[in-house]
Design a protein around this nucleic acid. Sequence first.
DNA 1: TAGTGGTCTAGACCACTAG
DNA 2: TAGTGGTCTAGACCACTAC
Lengths: 237, 237
Amino acid sequence: MKNKYLVIYNDLVQMIQQGEFVSGDTLPSEHELSQQFSTSRETIRKALNLLSQNGYIQKVRGKGSVVLDHNKFEFPVSGLTSFKEISDQLGQDFKTVVHEVFTETANNQLRSKLNCSKDVKIWKISRSREINGERIILDKDFIREDIVPDITKSIAERSIYDYIENDLGLDISFAKKEIVVESVTEEDRSYLDLRDHSQVVVIRSYVYLADATLFQFTESRHRPDKFQFVDFARRTK
Amino acid sequence: MKNKYLVIYNDLVQMIQQGEFVSGDTLPSEHELSQQFSTSRETIRKALNLLSQNGYIQKVRGKGSVVLDHNKFEFPVSGLTSFKEISDQLGQDFKTVVHEVFTETANNQLRSKLNCSKDVKIWKISRSREINGERIILDKDFIREDIVPDITKSIAERSIYDYIENDLGLDISFAKKEIVVESVTEEDRSYLDLRDHSQVVVIRSYVYLADATLFQFTESRHRPDKFQFVDFARRTK
DNA sequence: TAGTGGTCTAGACCACTAG
DNA sequence: TAGTGGTCTAGACCACTAC
Protein backbone atom coordinates (compact mmCIF):
# COMPACT_ATOMS: atom_id res chain seq x y z
CA MET A 1 0.00 0.00 0.00
CA LYS A 2 2.88 2.35 -0.68
CA ASN A 3 1.68 3.30 -4.16
CA LYS A 4 0.83 6.95 -4.11
CA TYR A 5 -2.41 6.55 -6.03
CA LEU A 6 -3.58 3.77 -3.72
CA VAL A 7 -2.88 5.89 -0.65
CA ILE A 8 -4.89 8.73 -2.19
CA TYR A 9 -7.67 6.32 -3.16
CA ASN A 10 -7.91 4.99 0.37
CA ASP A 11 -7.85 8.47 1.86
CA LEU A 12 -10.74 9.52 -0.36
CA VAL A 13 -12.74 6.34 0.32
CA GLN A 14 -12.36 6.96 4.02
CA MET A 15 -13.47 10.57 3.68
CA ILE A 16 -16.55 9.49 1.76
CA GLN A 17 -17.37 6.74 4.23
CA GLN A 18 -16.99 9.15 7.13
CA GLY A 19 -19.46 11.49 5.51
CA GLU A 20 -17.05 14.31 4.67
CA PHE A 21 -18.57 14.09 1.20
CA VAL A 22 -22.17 12.98 0.79
CA SER A 23 -24.18 11.79 -2.18
CA GLY A 24 -24.44 14.60 -4.71
CA ASP A 25 -21.35 16.54 -3.58
CA THR A 26 -18.52 17.03 -6.01
CA LEU A 27 -14.98 16.27 -4.92
CA PRO A 28 -12.31 18.97 -5.25
CA SER A 29 -11.09 19.27 -8.85
CA GLU A 30 -8.23 17.11 -10.09
CA HIS A 31 -6.02 20.18 -10.20
CA GLU A 32 -6.86 21.04 -6.60
CA LEU A 33 -6.36 17.45 -5.42
CA SER A 34 -2.99 17.24 -7.14
CA GLN A 35 -1.89 20.24 -5.09
CA GLN A 36 -3.38 18.93 -1.83
CA PHE A 37 -1.62 15.60 -2.22
CA SER A 38 1.45 17.19 -3.84
CA THR A 39 1.44 14.89 -6.82
CA SER A 40 0.80 15.05 -10.54
CA ARG A 41 -2.65 15.22 -12.03
CA GLU A 42 -2.29 11.81 -13.73
CA THR A 43 -1.71 10.17 -10.36
CA ILE A 44 -4.84 11.83 -8.97
CA ARG A 45 -6.73 10.60 -12.02
CA LYS A 46 -5.58 7.05 -11.31
CA ALA A 47 -7.02 7.28 -7.80
CA LEU A 48 -10.26 8.84 -9.05
CA ASN A 49 -10.68 6.15 -11.70
CA LEU A 50 -10.44 3.56 -8.95
CA LEU A 51 -13.13 5.39 -6.98
CA SER A 52 -15.27 5.46 -10.09
CA GLN A 53 -14.75 1.76 -10.85
CA ASN A 54 -15.79 0.86 -7.34
CA GLY A 55 -18.97 2.91 -7.45
CA TYR A 56 -17.97 5.73 -5.10
CA ILE A 57 -18.04 8.57 -7.61
CA GLN A 58 -19.05 9.32 -11.16
CA LYS A 59 -16.85 11.64 -13.17
CA VAL A 60 -18.70 14.23 -15.25
CA ARG A 61 -16.75 16.18 -17.82
CA GLY A 62 -16.82 19.92 -17.31
CA LYS A 63 -18.44 19.49 -13.92
CA GLY A 64 -16.39 17.37 -11.57
CA SER A 65 -16.40 14.08 -9.67
CA VAL A 66 -19.86 13.53 -8.23
CA VAL A 67 -20.15 11.43 -5.07
CA LEU A 68 -22.69 8.60 -5.37
CA ASP A 69 -24.94 6.92 -2.85
CA HIS A 70 -22.68 4.04 -2.01
CA ASN A 71 -24.98 2.47 0.57
CA LYS A 72 -27.81 1.47 -1.72
CA PHE A 73 -26.54 -2.06 -1.25
CA GLU A 74 -25.41 -3.12 2.15
CA PHE A 75 -24.18 -6.68 1.61
CA PRO A 76 -21.83 -6.88 -1.35
CA VAL A 77 -20.88 -10.52 -1.84
CA SER A 78 -19.71 -9.55 -5.28
CA GLY A 79 -16.51 -10.24 -7.11
CA LEU A 80 -14.27 -13.09 -6.17
CA THR A 81 -14.75 -13.76 -2.50
CA SER A 82 -13.96 -16.91 -0.59
CA PHE A 83 -16.37 -18.36 1.92
CA LYS A 84 -13.95 -17.57 4.72
CA GLU A 85 -13.80 -13.91 3.79
CA ILE A 86 -17.59 -13.71 3.76
CA SER A 87 -17.89 -15.39 7.12
CA ASP A 88 -15.24 -13.11 8.60
CA GLN A 89 -17.22 -10.13 7.39
CA LEU A 90 -20.53 -11.23 8.78
CA GLY A 91 -19.56 -12.72 12.10
CA GLN A 92 -22.33 -15.26 12.06
CA ASP A 93 -22.07 -18.91 12.90
CA PHE A 94 -20.28 -20.51 9.99
CA LYS A 95 -18.92 -23.97 9.44
CA THR A 96 -17.37 -25.93 6.60
CA VAL A 97 -17.91 -29.67 6.26
CA VAL A 98 -15.48 -31.48 3.97
CA HIS A 99 -16.91 -34.47 2.10
CA GLU A 100 -14.17 -35.46 -0.33
CA VAL A 101 -10.53 -34.59 -1.03
CA PHE A 102 -8.76 -36.72 -3.62
CA THR A 103 -6.87 -36.57 -6.93
CA GLU A 104 -7.90 -38.17 -10.16
CA THR A 105 -6.90 -38.17 -13.80
CA ALA A 106 -9.10 -35.63 -15.53
CA ASN A 107 -11.76 -36.72 -18.00
CA ASN A 108 -12.11 -34.91 -21.31
CA GLN A 109 -14.68 -32.40 -20.11
CA LEU A 110 -12.61 -31.30 -17.16
CA ARG A 111 -9.43 -31.19 -19.23
CA SER A 112 -11.05 -28.79 -21.63
CA LYS A 113 -12.37 -26.65 -18.77
CA LEU A 114 -8.90 -26.43 -17.24
CA ASN A 115 -6.92 -26.32 -20.51
CA CYS A 116 -4.60 -29.08 -19.39
CA SER A 117 -3.06 -32.21 -20.85
CA LYS A 118 -3.83 -35.87 -20.32
CA ASP A 119 -1.25 -36.58 -17.68
CA VAL A 120 -2.17 -33.78 -15.29
CA LYS A 121 -4.01 -34.93 -12.19
CA ILE A 122 -6.85 -32.93 -10.74
CA TRP A 123 -7.85 -32.43 -7.13
CA LYS A 124 -11.54 -32.96 -6.54
CA ILE A 125 -12.84 -31.34 -3.39
CA SER A 126 -16.39 -31.23 -2.18
CA ARG A 127 -17.52 -29.13 0.77
CA SER A 128 -20.75 -27.96 2.38
CA ARG A 129 -21.04 -24.54 3.95
CA GLU A 130 -23.19 -24.19 7.03
CA ILE A 131 -24.65 -20.89 8.16
CA ASN A 132 -26.45 -20.90 11.50
CA GLY A 133 -26.69 -24.67 11.44
CA GLU A 134 -28.07 -24.99 7.90
CA ARG A 135 -26.06 -26.36 4.99
CA ILE A 136 -26.83 -23.84 2.26
CA ILE A 137 -23.85 -23.94 -0.12
CA LEU A 138 -22.20 -26.93 -1.80
CA ASP A 139 -18.76 -26.12 -3.24
CA LYS A 140 -17.14 -28.47 -5.72
CA ASP A 141 -13.57 -27.49 -6.58
CA PHE A 142 -11.36 -28.88 -9.33
CA ILE A 143 -7.73 -27.81 -8.96
CA ARG A 144 -4.69 -28.68 -11.04
CA GLU A 145 -2.41 -30.88 -8.98
CA ASP A 146 0.72 -29.75 -10.83
CA ILE A 147 0.13 -26.24 -9.47
CA VAL A 148 -1.21 -27.05 -6.01
CA PRO A 149 0.44 -30.37 -5.09
CA ASP A 150 -0.82 -30.88 -1.54
CA ILE A 151 -4.30 -30.33 -0.19
CA THR A 152 -5.40 -31.94 3.04
CA LYS A 153 -8.77 -32.21 4.69
CA SER A 154 -7.74 -29.70 7.31
CA ILE A 155 -6.70 -27.19 4.65
CA ALA A 156 -10.07 -27.63 2.94
CA GLU A 157 -11.79 -27.06 6.27
CA ARG A 158 -10.05 -23.77 6.80
CA SER A 159 -9.57 -22.00 3.47
CA ILE A 160 -7.95 -23.30 0.31
CA TYR A 161 -7.40 -19.74 -0.91
CA ASP A 162 -5.58 -18.88 2.29
CA TYR A 163 -3.33 -21.89 1.79
CA ILE A 164 -2.65 -21.15 -1.88
CA GLU A 165 -1.89 -17.48 -1.31
CA ASN A 166 -0.16 -17.46 2.06
CA ASP A 167 1.52 -20.86 2.27
CA LEU A 168 2.26 -21.54 -1.39
CA GLY A 169 2.80 -17.86 -2.20
CA LEU A 170 0.74 -18.03 -5.38
CA ASP A 171 -1.18 -14.99 -6.48
CA ILE A 172 -4.85 -15.47 -7.36
CA SER A 173 -5.78 -12.79 -9.78
CA PHE A 174 -9.29 -13.03 -11.16
CA ALA A 175 -12.12 -15.26 -12.25
CA LYS A 176 -14.60 -15.55 -15.03
CA LYS A 177 -17.92 -16.68 -13.68
CA GLU A 178 -21.30 -17.76 -14.89
CA ILE A 179 -24.50 -17.80 -12.85
CA VAL A 180 -27.45 -20.02 -13.73
CA VAL A 181 -30.32 -21.78 -11.98
CA GLU A 182 -30.50 -25.56 -12.19
CA SER A 183 -32.56 -28.42 -10.82
CA VAL A 184 -31.24 -30.05 -7.68
CA THR A 185 -29.21 -33.23 -8.05
CA GLU A 186 -28.99 -36.22 -5.77
CA GLU A 187 -25.70 -34.80 -4.53
CA ASP A 188 -27.38 -31.49 -3.61
CA ARG A 189 -30.06 -33.39 -1.72
CA SER A 190 -27.58 -35.32 0.35
CA TYR A 191 -25.22 -32.45 1.16
CA LEU A 192 -27.59 -29.48 1.50
CA ASP A 193 -30.55 -28.66 3.72
CA LEU A 194 -32.82 -27.81 0.83
CA ARG A 195 -36.18 -27.52 2.60
CA ASP A 196 -38.69 -27.55 -0.24
CA HIS A 197 -36.44 -26.07 -2.88
CA SER A 198 -36.19 -27.98 -6.12
CA GLN A 199 -33.67 -25.65 -7.74
CA VAL A 200 -30.27 -24.25 -6.80
CA VAL A 201 -28.29 -21.23 -8.02
CA VAL A 202 -25.07 -22.47 -9.61
CA ILE A 203 -21.98 -20.28 -9.92
CA ARG A 204 -19.32 -21.74 -12.17
CA SER A 205 -15.95 -20.00 -11.97
CA TYR A 206 -12.69 -20.28 -13.83
CA VAL A 207 -9.94 -18.98 -11.59
CA TYR A 208 -6.61 -17.65 -12.88
CA LEU A 209 -3.29 -16.94 -11.19
CA ALA A 210 -1.47 -13.65 -11.60
CA ASP A 211 0.77 -15.23 -14.23
CA ALA A 212 -2.33 -16.01 -16.33
CA THR A 213 -2.44 -19.76 -15.70
CA LEU A 214 -5.90 -21.23 -15.31
CA PHE A 215 -5.58 -23.48 -12.27
CA GLN A 216 -9.04 -24.02 -10.84
CA PHE A 217 -12.61 -24.63 -11.85
CA THR A 218 -15.30 -24.32 -9.20
CA GLU A 219 -18.97 -25.08 -9.05
CA SER A 220 -20.69 -23.39 -6.14
CA ARG A 221 -24.28 -24.49 -5.57
CA HIS A 222 -26.44 -22.21 -3.43
CA ARG A 223 -29.86 -22.66 -1.91
CA PRO A 224 -31.83 -19.98 -3.79
CA ASP A 225 -33.33 -18.17 -0.81
CA LYS A 226 -29.86 -17.46 0.56
CA PHE A 227 -28.31 -16.28 -2.67
CA GLN A 228 -27.48 -12.67 -3.47
CA PHE A 229 -25.17 -11.19 -6.06
CA VAL A 230 -24.31 -7.52 -6.39
CA ASP A 231 -22.81 -6.05 -9.52
CA PHE A 232 -21.71 -2.70 -10.77
CA ALA A 233 -21.89 -2.36 -14.53
CA ARG A 234 -20.47 0.47 -16.57
CA ARG A 235 -21.94 0.95 -20.00
CA THR A 236 -19.48 0.48 -22.83
CA LYS A 237 -20.39 1.36 -26.36
CA MET B 1 -14.31 6.35 -32.12
CA LYS B 2 -11.54 8.80 -32.98
CA ASN B 3 -9.70 8.34 -29.67
CA LYS B 4 -6.35 6.86 -30.42
CA TYR B 5 -6.44 4.36 -27.57
CA LEU B 6 -9.90 3.15 -28.63
CA VAL B 7 -8.75 2.63 -32.20
CA ILE B 8 -5.79 0.61 -30.93
CA TYR B 9 -8.04 -1.34 -28.57
CA ASN B 10 -10.42 -2.24 -31.38
CA ASP B 11 -7.55 -3.20 -33.67
CA LEU B 12 -6.16 -5.55 -31.06
CA VAL B 13 -9.57 -7.04 -30.24
CA GLN B 14 -10.08 -7.76 -33.90
CA MET B 15 -6.66 -9.36 -34.20
CA ILE B 16 -7.37 -11.60 -31.23
CA GLN B 17 -10.80 -12.53 -32.52
CA GLN B 18 -9.38 -13.36 -35.93
CA GLY B 19 -6.90 -15.70 -34.33
CA GLU B 20 -3.73 -13.70 -35.01
CA PHE B 21 -3.04 -14.22 -31.32
CA VAL B 22 -4.30 -17.30 -29.56
CA SER B 23 -4.73 -18.23 -25.92
CA GLY B 24 -1.33 -18.33 -24.27
CA ASP B 25 0.47 -16.04 -26.73
CA THR B 26 1.94 -12.81 -25.50
CA LEU B 27 1.22 -9.59 -27.35
CA PRO B 28 4.15 -7.46 -28.56
CA SER B 29 5.62 -5.45 -25.71
CA GLU B 30 4.25 -2.02 -24.86
CA HIS B 31 7.39 -0.45 -26.22
CA GLU B 32 7.03 -2.33 -29.49
CA LEU B 33 3.33 -1.52 -29.81
CA SER B 34 3.96 2.15 -29.19
CA GLN B 35 6.32 2.13 -32.18
CA GLN B 36 3.95 0.09 -34.37
CA PHE B 37 1.07 2.48 -33.67
CA SER B 38 3.37 5.52 -33.54
CA THR B 39 2.09 6.69 -30.20
CA SER B 40 3.30 7.02 -26.62
CA ARG B 41 3.57 4.12 -24.27
CA GLU B 42 0.88 5.52 -21.94
CA THR B 43 -1.64 5.47 -24.77
CA ILE B 44 -0.79 1.86 -25.54
CA ARG B 45 -1.22 1.10 -21.85
CA LYS B 46 -4.71 2.61 -21.91
CA ALA B 47 -5.68 0.31 -24.77
CA LEU B 48 -4.13 -2.73 -23.06
CA ASN B 49 -5.92 -1.94 -19.80
CA LEU B 50 -9.20 -1.98 -21.70
CA LEU B 51 -8.31 -5.36 -23.18
CA SER B 52 -7.49 -6.60 -19.69
CA GLN B 53 -10.73 -5.25 -18.19
CA ASN B 54 -12.75 -6.99 -20.86
CA GLY B 55 -11.08 -10.33 -20.36
CA TYR B 56 -9.00 -10.49 -23.55
CA ILE B 57 -5.57 -10.42 -21.96
CA GLN B 58 -3.88 -10.60 -18.61
CA LYS B 59 -0.86 -8.40 -18.01
CA VAL B 60 2.04 -10.08 -16.23
CA ARG B 61 4.85 -7.92 -14.95
CA GLY B 62 8.24 -8.79 -16.37
CA LYS B 63 6.66 -11.11 -18.89
CA GLY B 64 4.12 -9.43 -21.12
CA SER B 65 0.43 -9.32 -21.99
CA VAL B 66 -0.85 -12.88 -22.14
CA VAL B 67 -3.82 -13.58 -24.41
CA LEU B 68 -6.65 -15.41 -22.63
CA ASP B 69 -9.21 -17.91 -23.81
CA HIS B 70 -12.00 -15.47 -24.51
CA ASN B 71 -14.47 -18.04 -25.77
CA LYS B 72 -14.98 -19.95 -22.54
CA PHE B 73 -18.38 -18.23 -22.43
CA GLU B 74 -20.23 -17.81 -25.64
CA PHE B 75 -23.31 -15.87 -24.56
CA PRO B 76 -22.38 -12.82 -22.54
CA VAL B 77 -25.60 -11.18 -21.37
CA SER B 78 -23.52 -9.33 -18.86
CA GLY B 79 -23.32 -5.68 -18.02
CA LEU B 80 -26.07 -3.25 -18.76
CA THR B 81 -27.87 -4.53 -21.81
CA SER B 82 -31.36 -3.74 -22.99
CA PHE B 83 -33.69 -6.44 -24.18
CA LYS B 84 -33.61 -5.00 -27.66
CA GLU B 85 -29.83 -5.27 -27.84
CA ILE B 86 -29.97 -8.88 -26.72
CA SER B 87 -32.62 -9.73 -29.26
CA ASP B 88 -30.65 -7.98 -32.00
CA GLN B 89 -27.63 -10.07 -31.08
CA LEU B 90 -29.38 -13.38 -31.08
CA GLY B 91 -31.71 -13.05 -34.02
CA GLN B 92 -34.33 -15.30 -32.50
CA ASP B 93 -38.04 -14.67 -32.44
CA PHE B 94 -38.52 -11.90 -29.89
CA LYS B 95 -41.54 -9.86 -28.92
CA THR B 96 -42.39 -7.31 -26.25
CA VAL B 97 -45.91 -7.07 -24.83
CA VAL B 98 -46.71 -3.85 -22.98
CA HIS B 99 -49.12 -4.21 -20.07
CA GLU B 100 -49.08 -0.80 -18.39
CA VAL B 101 -47.68 2.67 -19.08
CA PHE B 102 -48.76 5.41 -16.68
CA THR B 103 -47.44 8.04 -14.25
CA GLU B 104 -48.11 8.18 -10.56
CA THR B 105 -46.93 10.09 -7.53
CA ALA B 106 -44.20 8.00 -5.93
CA ASN B 107 -44.73 6.33 -2.59
CA ASN B 108 -42.08 6.51 0.09
CA GLN B 109 -40.31 3.32 -0.87
CA LEU B 110 -39.95 4.32 -4.50
CA ARG B 111 -38.92 7.85 -3.57
CA SER B 112 -36.08 6.52 -1.49
CA LYS B 113 -35.03 4.15 -4.27
CA LEU B 114 -34.95 6.99 -6.79
CA ASN B 115 -33.65 9.71 -4.42
CA CYS B 116 -36.41 12.13 -5.41
CA SER B 117 -38.81 14.52 -3.71
CA LYS B 118 -42.53 14.26 -3.04
CA ASP B 119 -43.74 16.17 -6.07
CA VAL B 120 -41.85 14.16 -8.69
CA LYS B 121 -44.06 11.83 -10.68
CA ILE B 122 -42.87 8.40 -11.68
CA TRP B 123 -43.55 6.42 -14.83
CA LYS B 124 -44.60 2.86 -14.14
CA ILE B 125 -44.12 0.52 -17.05
CA SER B 126 -44.74 -3.17 -17.13
CA ARG B 127 -43.73 -5.39 -20.06
CA SER B 128 -43.41 -9.07 -20.85
CA ARG B 129 -40.65 -10.34 -23.09
CA GLU B 130 -41.42 -13.25 -25.37
CA ILE B 131 -38.76 -15.50 -26.83
CA ASN B 132 -39.93 -18.07 -29.35
CA GLY B 133 -43.52 -17.64 -28.25
CA GLU B 134 -42.93 -17.97 -24.51
CA ARG B 135 -43.16 -15.07 -22.08
CA ILE B 136 -40.03 -15.54 -20.01
CA ILE B 137 -39.14 -12.07 -18.67
CA LEU B 138 -41.31 -9.55 -16.85
CA ASP B 139 -39.77 -6.05 -16.77
CA LYS B 140 -41.12 -3.46 -14.36
CA ASP B 141 -39.59 -0.02 -14.91
CA PHE B 142 -39.89 3.03 -12.69
CA ILE B 143 -38.61 6.19 -14.39
CA ARG B 144 -38.54 9.77 -13.19
CA GLU B 145 -41.04 11.79 -15.20
CA ASP B 146 -39.10 15.04 -14.71
CA ILE B 147 -36.22 13.50 -16.69
CA VAL B 148 -38.16 11.47 -19.26
CA PRO B 149 -41.42 13.38 -19.73
CA ASP B 150 -43.10 11.36 -22.48
CA ILE B 151 -43.31 7.62 -22.83
CA THR B 152 -45.90 6.02 -25.04
CA LYS B 153 -46.98 2.44 -25.46
CA SER B 154 -45.29 2.30 -28.84
CA ILE B 155 -42.00 3.53 -27.36
CA ALA B 156 -42.24 0.85 -24.67
CA GLU B 157 -42.87 -1.74 -27.36
CA ARG B 158 -39.72 -0.81 -29.22
CA SER B 159 -36.99 0.20 -26.77
CA ILE B 160 -37.13 2.78 -24.01
CA TYR B 161 -33.32 2.98 -23.96
CA ASP B 162 -33.28 3.71 -27.68
CA TYR B 163 -35.78 6.51 -27.12
CA ILE B 164 -33.92 7.98 -24.16
CA GLU B 165 -30.54 7.90 -25.85
CA ASN B 166 -31.34 8.66 -29.46
CA ASP B 167 -34.47 10.81 -29.28
CA LEU B 168 -33.93 12.59 -25.97
CA GLY B 169 -30.14 12.66 -26.33
CA LEU B 170 -29.59 11.55 -22.76
CA ASP B 171 -26.57 9.47 -21.94
CA ILE B 172 -27.10 6.31 -19.92
CA SER B 173 -23.92 5.58 -18.10
CA PHE B 174 -24.07 2.65 -15.71
CA ALA B 175 -26.13 0.65 -13.26
CA LYS B 176 -25.82 -0.94 -9.87
CA LYS B 177 -27.61 -4.23 -9.86
CA GLU B 178 -28.63 -6.94 -7.44
CA ILE B 179 -29.58 -10.50 -8.35
CA VAL B 180 -31.73 -12.67 -6.08
CA VAL B 181 -34.18 -15.54 -6.38
CA GLU B 182 -37.74 -14.98 -5.16
CA SER B 183 -41.04 -16.80 -5.07
CA VAL B 184 -43.40 -16.04 -7.92
CA THR B 185 -46.12 -13.45 -7.38
CA GLU B 186 -49.64 -13.32 -8.79
CA GLU B 187 -48.32 -10.76 -11.27
CA ASP B 188 -45.62 -13.19 -12.45
CA ARG B 189 -48.23 -15.88 -12.89
CA SER B 190 -50.45 -13.71 -15.06
CA TYR B 191 -47.73 -12.20 -17.24
CA LEU B 192 -45.24 -15.06 -17.61
CA ASP B 193 -45.40 -18.60 -18.96
CA LEU B 194 -43.97 -20.17 -15.86
CA ARG B 195 -44.56 -23.86 -16.56
CA ASP B 196 -43.97 -25.49 -13.20
CA HIS B 197 -41.56 -22.94 -11.81
CA SER B 198 -42.40 -21.51 -8.41
CA GLN B 199 -39.45 -19.11 -8.29
CA VAL B 200 -38.06 -16.38 -10.52
CA VAL B 201 -34.65 -14.74 -10.77
CA VAL B 202 -35.03 -11.04 -9.95
CA ILE B 203 -32.55 -8.43 -11.17
CA ARG B 204 -33.02 -5.05 -9.52
CA SER B 205 -31.08 -2.22 -11.16
CA TYR B 206 -30.49 1.39 -10.36
CA VAL B 207 -29.66 3.21 -13.59
CA TYR B 208 -27.69 6.46 -13.76
CA LEU B 209 -27.20 9.04 -16.48
CA ALA B 210 -23.78 10.30 -17.50
CA ASP B 211 -24.31 13.40 -15.34
CA ALA B 212 -24.71 11.14 -12.29
CA THR B 213 -28.47 11.53 -11.86
CA LEU B 214 -30.31 8.40 -10.80
CA PHE B 215 -33.32 8.32 -13.11
CA GLN B 216 -34.59 4.76 -13.25
CA PHE B 217 -35.21 1.75 -11.09
CA THR B 218 -35.96 -1.55 -12.80
CA GLU B 219 -37.08 -4.95 -11.64
CA SER B 220 -36.49 -7.62 -14.24
CA ARG B 221 -38.06 -10.98 -13.39
CA HIS B 222 -36.74 -13.99 -15.31
CA ARG B 223 -37.97 -17.53 -15.55
CA PRO B 224 -35.08 -19.41 -13.92
CA ASP B 225 -34.41 -21.93 -16.66
CA LYS B 226 -33.81 -19.11 -19.15
CA PHE B 227 -31.58 -17.02 -16.95
CA GLN B 228 -27.83 -16.68 -17.39
CA PHE B 229 -25.43 -14.10 -16.09
CA VAL B 230 -21.76 -13.82 -16.98
CA ASP B 231 -19.30 -11.88 -14.92
CA PHE B 232 -15.64 -11.10 -14.99
CA ALA B 233 -14.20 -10.35 -11.58
CA ARG B 234 -10.77 -9.00 -10.90
CA ARG B 235 -9.42 -9.59 -7.43
CA THR B 236 -8.79 -6.46 -5.40
CA LYS B 237 -7.00 -6.63 -2.10
C1' DT C 1 21.56 -8.76 -17.51
C1' DA C 2 18.16 -7.42 -20.84
C1' DG C 3 13.50 -6.84 -21.37
C1' DT C 4 9.04 -6.55 -19.46
C1' DG C 5 5.13 -4.05 -17.21
C1' DG C 6 4.02 -0.52 -13.06
C1' DT C 7 4.33 4.09 -11.34
C1' DC C 8 5.01 8.90 -11.66
C1' DT C 9 5.98 13.50 -13.63
C1' DA C 10 5.15 18.14 -15.96
C1' DG C 11 3.46 19.72 -19.43
C1' DA C 12 0.11 20.36 -23.66
C1' DC C 13 -4.29 20.74 -26.04
C1' DC C 14 -9.17 19.54 -26.39
C1' DA C 15 -14.39 18.99 -25.16
C1' DC C 16 -17.58 20.04 -22.13
C1' DT C 17 -20.40 22.64 -18.26
C1' DA C 18 -21.66 26.48 -15.94
C1' DG C 19 -22.40 31.31 -14.90
C1' DT D 1 -15.23 32.83 -20.34
C1' DA D 2 -13.24 30.25 -16.55
C1' DG D 3 -12.96 25.89 -14.82
C1' DT D 4 -13.67 21.07 -15.29
C1' DG D 5 -12.37 16.36 -16.82
C1' DG D 6 -10.39 13.57 -21.24
C1' DT D 7 -6.51 12.60 -24.12
C1' DC D 8 -1.77 12.43 -25.30
C1' DT D 9 3.26 13.02 -24.98
C1' DA D 10 8.29 11.97 -23.81
C1' DG D 11 10.66 11.05 -20.54
C1' DA D 12 12.21 8.87 -15.78
C1' DC D 13 12.84 5.27 -12.36
C1' DC D 14 11.37 0.92 -10.26
C1' DA D 15 9.97 -4.24 -9.65
C1' DC D 16 9.75 -8.28 -11.72
C1' DT D 17 10.71 -12.37 -15.11
C1' DA D 18 13.49 -15.00 -17.81
C1' DC D 19 17.77 -16.45 -19.45
